[in-house]
Nucleic acid binder design. Structure first.
Length: 250
DNA sequence: AATTATCCCAACCGCTCTTTC
DNA sequence: TGAAAGAGCGGTTGGGATAAT
């Protein structure tokens, strides 16, 4: 007995989401929080697959999402994490607050991969492409990247990254898995500090919305007013979110 | 100005993992 | 304990935007 499709294909809309659909999904989650995704389309009056709703929310509508390109610090972190974790985008994304696995995956495939190739580094193995260079290469990948980029003075060195806003830690399990070595200054730096977690994934709605979401709405074809939500202008609501995030940093 | 090529990213597909009964 | 259902993940694709000719 084969597995049933995640949703009834008949009558299920596909393709780009409209502003109206976004509005319905946001309103639903605002009022009900995240629940069983399969039930969301029916309850929210959306002709979409539950999976599609989850993806839309996770990758685009979530209020804590950062918009725009990854910063150089984020990019550096992605490269280092990829060297350790491989294509485990969700794991990597969990280390970058406000970024989604899809976003990081896309950024990797469109920018970082090319950048590494241009630098003579295999984006899969993170080893130098040139065998001769490999034979004489005694430094780690991170050192290699830092050396190249320090020359360009575009990206701060590992010493500087300790004061970076992109501070992350690892669970003991992951630290074991990653075989963190003190010999790797960057990873020592990355692993030796506290990191901010994403806003609680359980998403206690309504109430905690930040200006990112206001920005998002401004980018859409509809406005905040369309939702009948006043909290976007509420400074206290924004402060609450910031306080919550700071709490995770402690 | 029109056409073609390339890039980028949102969204989909299908598989795996986890949970429930 | 195993099957089914639900959720999550990574790979891939389609189409819009932009650049090049």
């Amino acid at each position: 007995m084969g597995r049933q499709p995640c949703c009834d294909k008949l009558g299920v809309k596909k393709g780009p989401w409209t502003a109206e659909e976004d509005k319905k999904l946001i309103n639903f989650i605002l009022n009900n929080g995240q629940c069983c995704w399969r039930a969301v389309p029916k309850l929210a009056d959306l002709r979409r697959c539950g999976k599609s709703c989850r993806l839309r929310w996770t990758n685009y509508l979530r209020p804590d999402l950062k918009r725009g390109l990854l910063t150089e610090e984020e990019e550096q972190l992605v490269i280092d994490l990829h060297a350790r974790l491989g294509n485990r985008w969700s794991k990597i994304a969990s280390r970058l607050p406000g970024r989604t696995d899809n976003e990081i995956k896309n950024h990797w495939n469109t920018y970082i991969k090319k950048k590494l190739l241009k630098m003579g580094i295999d984006p899969v193995t993170h080893e130098p492409l040139n065998k001769e260079a490999k034979a004489t290469e005694t430094t780690s990948y991170a050192d290699h990247v830092q050396l190249l980029e320090a020359n360009n003075k575009n990206i701060p060195s590992s010493e500087n990254s300790s004061s970076s806003p992109m501070e992350h830690n690892f669970s003991s399990d992951e630290s074991n898995f990653l075989s963190i070595s003190n010999d790797d200054p960057l990873m020592s730096c990355l692993c030796g500090v506290e990191i901010p977690q994403l806003v609680d994934p359980s998403w206690e709605f309504p109430g905690l919305w930040d200006e990112n979401f206001a920005g998002l709405l401004n980018c859409q074809d509809f406005g905040i007013q369309d939702f009948g939500i006043d909290c976007f202008d509420d400074v206290e609501a924004t402060n609450s979110l910031n306080t919550l995030e700071m709490g995770h940093n402690l």
